[in-house]
């Protein structure tokens, strides 16, 4: 590819890549541009006759500390959920990739992917049934445990975290699994023949070699969780006010699209800055 691309090749390249770029333009670039445009308006054209261009939506974020507080809360939620996904997902991927073979692996894999195939609303309301007072979880625990226990997790931060971890766990498992599976079993055998314990093998071989996959999974979880609104709203109730739910409110309840758009772009910028700051670490992991 480094050589000179001939005219004919360029034409072929264009034909092949054209549809993809067209689609990206239509589905991503245009809506995003429209949103960016909206974020600088004082009112939506058509709603108010005297709409104009303003920076007011962005200054609102600075003037009202609630937004920053909520953004910080959402970022913390993102970190928490990502950590839980890693702590639960990586060992799962490790067992799946290195310990289980054949049919059992396929069956387990299916169970990992299953959350992807169910409607997210159904999934979240199912958690509501499990987590609420006198719900499935409380009843089961009372049935097993000899003493009485009151457990109402509904409308707590824990419920939000549980719902989000369940939704996004497959990303970490899948990316880590792919990275782990690519590691030749002979490497592990070689390390063992040199006297390495399982922990040494994990720390010095498996983790470093699968880090790119693990980090890719972490990014895939972190970014959408910071902007999530459905799980916080349904499982969090009063506790579930996050940056994402505020944005959603601007679009569907308050109908202040310009402010919602501005808040969205601030979120996008913050996430990009975080990923940019982390990129040296990400790049080092790749080599």
């Amino acid at each position: 590819m480094a050589e000179v691309i001939h005219a004919q090749d360029r034409r072929r390249l264009l034909t092949l890549l054209g549809p993809a770029y067209l689609w990206l333009t239509l589905a991503v670039f245009l809506p995003l541009s429209a949103m960016l445009f909206f974020s600088f308006l004082s009112d939506m054209p058509g709603d108010a006759p005297d709409w104009g261009v303003t920076l007011g939506n962005y200054t609102q974020f600075l003037e009202n500390p609630t937004y920053a507080t909520l953004l910080w809360k959402s970022l913390k939620l993102g970190v928490t959920v990502t950590l839980f996904c890693i702590v639960i997902g990586y060992p799962c991927a490790l067992v799946l990739a290195k310990s289980i073979k054949g049919r059992a692996r396929e069956a387990l894999f299916l169970m990992v992917i299953l959350p992807f195939w169910s409607n997210s609303l159904v999934r979240i309301f199912s958690w509501a049934i499990v987590l609420r007072g006198n719900g499935v979880l409380e009843r089961t625990l009372n049935w097993i445990l000899p003493f009485d226990i009151r457990l109402n997790l509904m409308f707590t931060t824990e419920a939000v975290v549980i719902g989000l971890v369940h939704s996004y766990l497959p990303y970490v498992i899948l990316t880590s699994y792919l990275a782990l599976q690519a590691i030749d079993d002979d490497l592990i055998d070689a390390a063992r023949s040199m006297g390495a314990s399982k922990l040494t093998i994990l720390n010095r071989l498996l983790l470093p070699l699968s880090l790119p996959g693990l980090l890719a999974g972490a990014v895939l979880v972190f970014v959408p969780v910071v902007g999530s609104f459905m799980e916080p709203r349904i499982l969090g109730g009063r506790m579930g006010t996050y940056y994402g739910t505020v944005i959603e409110d601007q679009f569907v309840a308050v109908y202040n699209w310009p402010l919602g758009a501005a808040l969205s772009f601030i979120l996008l910028a913050v996430v990009l800055v975080i990923l940019g700051a982390a990129s040296p670490v990400l790049r080092r992991a790749r080599t």
Binding site: D186, D189, A190, S193
Partner: peptide, 15 residues
């Protein structure tokens, strides 16, 4: 791990 052997693999298995 505890046998104190040295082993060389077909595909070298270098880390």
């Amino acid at each position: 791990e505890k046998r104190d052997i040295g082993m060389m693999f077909q595909n070298y298995a270098l880390f």
